[in-house]
Design a protein around this nucleic acid. Structure first.
Lengths: 346, 346
DNA sequence: CATCCTCGGGAGAGCGCTCTATCCGGTTCA
DNA sequence: TGAACCGGATAGAGCGCTCTCCCGAGGATG
């Protein structure tokens, strides 16, 4: 970067028109004479002009940037922060979120800036970041039901869209899945296969999605005469799935069906079952949740309840863009339906 | 956001001082009378002032934002773009990169914006994004050796730091691993265990890291009398590892050692071996590469060559910050040493 | 032929901040 | 006592862009 970058002024002089006209050409607004348009374009490429985003933002009050925030509850220590980031990013679920979001933002020339807000301070940073106009809005994925961030955002009147309904009502749009129906689908499938001694590994019960999946599952089991379904709580990771299954297996060695609240845990469950000499699905049927990439790579491939994460994330981005653009003003919710995907594990 | 956001002017009026003084307090520069400092601070919290980042950027020419770019080579179709993003983000490797980068950026109050540049157009977008001052610099992770992005960035004189040495020399800083030494470590370990019929699954050979790991491995094997090591090329994914091992096993059923160029493939390899009735490590020893999270969750846990990705990513961020700040002007390279981590698979 | 539009273009006022030049009042020192 | 100095604050000039207003030249209209 040797000399000063060319400005609108330079291009205008080069093309022999006014700043305003160049601006009009660049932004494609109003009718500009095609001949002048062309000469401006040439002047632009001759000077190698690139509009200064800061100057533009200063007057438009738009940055074409949104914050993609993964927020937890409570406080974690300084060094845990990075571990949190690593864990979140590595989760196949997050990959699908990013994929869906980017797919929507790209055609709108918008960009996501990644933020992790697992401490109160970090959450305050997110609010400040938005308040100072560094981003136009936020897409929030909470890892806990009682995440305080949505309320902070709503309180500051900042545009935001949530993944999953917040535990306490907040005046923000969100997308969610009918988790309860997902639990029902899993139960019906296991029952349909003739499973009679079914157990379940739930997600963390402070996450409402976990509660709902479990509730839907248990309700359906109950309605078919299975009043009690043994439960172990997991943490949505492979490890926690293994631990939970080990525990359940000790108490219920005759188990013939398992519902796991996500695929990662289902994978761990399959691993434990195999190590204990149980064949999946012959001896024990396993149903996962999410239909993430591991559902396919898992041995055996998982029968699972599909959550259309990419579509949900895309919807989030779309909603946020509409809120930012002022097209949509009222908080809106979009609930997606789960779908059973039958593979080999059940 | 009901009324207009308060500006410096408002705070100044409220505190009974000039704009400049408030600015100094906000930015903590120069000597300001402690009493005035305090009254300004109070005025700030009373008005709920948050500095406008666009206005600030306009004059400082800094955004405190960096682009975190994952760039491929060649062109992929429109719909493959999202798949690319999903695949990249989900890779545990990327999670570690993000973790390391965020760890460095956070204390500097900088933020990463995520960009995927797997088409020529997308790469051009990255350059434009930086040229218009939307970000102060770029951290580039290339998925292919002949990625054209580094040259574009260097050509435009934009601050950037690369993960891995570019195939053609470019005037940019980079961090890298001594991959060749990593291959050597793997070979020595397998030989030390007494393996005599060793095969290897490499990464894509258009990635220089793959070539180097393979070269280091083969050289060492050759030096110990093993002139020929059967090879199958994989794609750094579990699936490709499985396919490669299936192939190798068909031609070399008596194999007793495998070196995989990353952990994901090693995991696939272990799976195939188990399915074929081979015990790991008893019948076949498997050495992976990376020491990623799957090395621990894999059954059996993987003996692997550790790549300190977090540290490397942190170094990238640090280098970039120095380049942006003008503290460092010459392109610099930092090469990290791999380390063997012995677990159960070999 | 006067009037009213429409269309293409220019002038210029900011957007909210930083930063240099400047000023002011009080001390120090020749 | 006056010049030099210095910490501490202000005034004001931009940074590069958008956007509203305005103007002038045609063309349509009555």
């Amino acid at each position: 970067m040797s000399r000063q970058a060319p400005t609108l002024e330079d291009v205008a002089r080069e093309a022999g028109v006014s700043r305003a006209t160049v601006s009009r050409v660049v932004n494609g607004v109003r009718n500009v004479d095609p001949a002048i348009q062309e000469s401006v374009r040439q002047a632009i490429s001759r000077t190698g002009y690139a509009p200064n985003q800061a100057a533009r933002s200063l007057v438009t009050r738009r940055t074409e940037t949104v914050a993609l925030v993964v927020s937890g509850a409570g406080d974690v220590s300084e060094e845990e922060q990075n571990a949190f980031a690593a864990r979140v990013v590595t989760d196949p679920f997050f990959g699908r979120v990013v994929s869906g979001v980017v797919g929507q933002l790209r055609p709108r020339s918008m960009h996501p800036v990644l933020m992790f807000a697992e401490t109160d301070e970090a959450r305050q940073d997110v609010v400040t970041y938005l308040r100072q106009g560094s981003a136009d809005g936020a897409l929030v994925v909470s890892t806990h039901a009682d995440d305080p961030l949505p309320a902070l955002l709503a309180g500051a009147g900042l545009p935001a869209v949530l993944f999953a309904r917040p535990s306490r009502p907040v005046a923000l749009s969100y997308v969610d899945l009918a988790h309860r129906d997902g639990g029902r689908l899993a139960a019906e499938h296991l029952l349909g296969r003739g499973c009679r001694r079914v157990v379940t590994v739930s997600g963390p019960l402070d996450v409402s999605a976990s509660q709902e999946r479990l509730a839907g599952f248990r309700d359906t089991m109950a309605r078919h005469g299975h009043a009690y379904v043994p439960l172990a709580q997991g943490g949505f990771t492979v490890d926690s799935g293994m631990a939970a299954m080990t525990e359940l297996l000790a108490e219920h060695p005759d188990v013939d069906g398992v519902f796991a609240a996500n695929d990662l845990m289902a994978q761990g469950i399959c691993q434990v079952l195999r190590e204990r000499g149980r064949r999946v699905p012959h001896d024990v049927a396993v149903v996962g949740f999410d239909d993430s990439s591991v559902a396919v790579t898992c041995r055996p491939p998982l029968t699972t309840v599909r959550q259309p994460v990419e579509d949900m994330a895309a919807a989030m981005a779309r909603l946020l863009a509409e809120h930012i653009g002022g097209v949509r003003t009222e908080p809106t919710s979009i609930i997606f339906d789960p779908e059973l995907v039958v593979r080999e594990s059940a």
